[in-house]
Amino acid sequence: MSIQRLSRRDRGPELATAPFAFFPVALAGAIFLALLIKAWPLLSLKSLSSLIFSSTWLPSRGHFGLWPFILGTIWVTISAFVLAVPVAILTSLYLSEYAPARVKRIFQPILDLLAGLPSVIYGMWGVLIVVPLVSKYLAPFFGRQSSGYSILAASLVLALMILPTIISVSVEVLNSVPLALKEAALSLGATRFEVIRYVVMKKSFPGMLAACVLGLSRAFGETIAVLMVVGNVPAIPRSLFSPAYPLPALLANNYGEMMSIPGYESALNLAALLLLVIVVGFSLLARWYLVRISRRSS
């Protein structure tokens, strides 16, 4: 059987599958272009920086400052991340290094289920539990007033929502550290914690980072769960207890019925474009960094 004949016989399927492989390329390009074209009317009137950094959002008067929404997105995402990551790392270390097999067996299916639980359910839970918790207990505790619909509530809900994902990916990463390596360190007289700190953490750092990035990019774009508890007030947030209006919530609340006011449609498409650029840019940056460290360490 010659190579040539083998490859001639293969031409058909190759040509048949190729277009499908280009579909992702086309789709990514199309989304970007469509949003850009739709946002263009506004972009040709005002400078991008004036749209991004202005904080006046009055569509009926033609003011489309997106700054409060951008800040809202960043606040909510970063605080969720800060809440989730330490807990996720501690938990995944416990699960992979200390927990008895029985505990792992209980945990795994619960994590799987909750990683796949729809966000509307997390949002519902936020409305039922977290919002009252913030308004009745947390805010007064810090000497503040809050309706409960706040950045803090949103980030608590979001943190809980991304925890199962981060934890199960991290546990997988940690489990891939060879047992023999841990034993080598143990037999030098290290305690288990020292093995974790100096060997396991070091070995699994890129993987853990990837797990966190996964959680973070999910948090960035989360819509419904956040929308339900964040208050949706288009103003610059002052503290964790004030409401905010992240970009996805802005889109969800207004995108479907935006036709009447001039420039409004453009502004919302610009918001979508910004969200896209922020999230994608961020995850590409993380990916690039991960590739770099994994190349350096090998």
């Binding site: 023999a180 034993e183 080598a184 360190a185 037999s187 030098l188 007289g189 100096y198 060997v199």
Partner: peptide, 14 residues
């Protein structure tokens, strides 16, 4: 463990 060194089948460098 500190009083006993261990060499494993495959070398396990930290």
């Amino acid at each position: 463990r500190k009083r006993m060194g261990l060499l494993s089948q495959k070398p396990q460098v930290l």
